[in-house]
Design a protein around this nucleic acid. Structure first.
Lengths: 153, 153
DNA sequence: CAGGATCCTAAACGATACTG
DNA sequence: CAGTATCGTTTAGGATCCTG
């Protein structure tokens, strides 16, 4: 990665010590901001939605249940600022604006989609697992099995 | 109205697949809660950290720069509740607790890792692209097709 | 239609202190 | 050591009104 030159003031004292994976574990790592945008509540959904093609503002708003105008606009601005989303505005009235993924945006969106798909595809396992653990707790509230003492496998 | 026009480079996705993930777009979809835990500010880092092996509470706290005790504890509880993290407590004094990924946790963690790695690996492109766009705006504030008069976050 | 501006609430977050 | 409890601060997020 040839990306470790910018950010004035970003010292690298103990940073190098943080394993090969690196910088993400450092508090001041610039990757974290990007990660926040991409993994934000609406960022994930916007990226996945745009993977299906260009959308207008209202289209996105209708498609992504529960998002407010403000948060959708803000999320789109974050993603545009990171270079993941392209905003194309046509000088007509009433205003016509289209949002699409940049080539780079397609790449992140695919990663995000992988995560989203995994969760949706495994929701059954997750929910049933949660239920089983709850039952085990109700039946045996003793400090024996569940969250209680357990010897390593 | 080309809202669903396929993206260049993105093959027309299988219709069935769109239906599969349809739930995420619904406001009340239970997947969203899980997604929130996994993509939360510290959830991402915890999962990636645990992918490297079992950690004690303090180990995680030291490794993940900037996390507070409170948020680390809460994040671990979320992930444990979802069945991604296994908490093993040894009945000794002083207390000894170990956190590790469950088999299911390893699967999500890999997805999350893919995203995290992509961002770290492409941070250079992201930052330089951001700078180029800022320069272009300063030099040529033309209100062409590509507009964007705004202050960056 | 696409947002910006404004105001507000709920939640996230962090620092500190305390306990088994 | 591994938390919980509490408190104060910050931010996310939402509702509403307004304009080009």
């Amino acid at each position: 990665m040839n990306a470790n030159e910018p950010l004035p003031g970003a010292e690298a004292p103990a940073i190098a010590k943080l394993m090969e994976r690196g910088e993400l574990f450092a508090a001041e790592c610039p990757s974290r901001a990007v990660l926040q945008h991409v993994t934000s509540r609406w960022g994930v959904l916007v990226l996945v939605a745009l993977l299906a093609g260009t959308h207008r503002f209202s289209d996105l708003r209708r498609k992504i249940g529960g998002v407010s105008e403000k948060m959708l606009a803000q999320t789109l601005q974050w993603l545009e600022g990171d270079g993941f989303v392209l905003r194309t505005q046509y000088p007509v009235v009433p205003p016509h604006v289209e949002y699409s993924l940049t080539p780079m945006g397609v790449e992140v969106a695919r990663q995000v989609e992988g995560l989203a798909d995994w969760i949706e595809g495994n929701l059954g396992r997750i929910l049933s697992g949660r239920r089983e653990r709850a039952d085990a707790l109700a039946v045996a509230p003793l400090p024996g099995v569940r969250a209680g003492v357990r010897t390593p496998a």
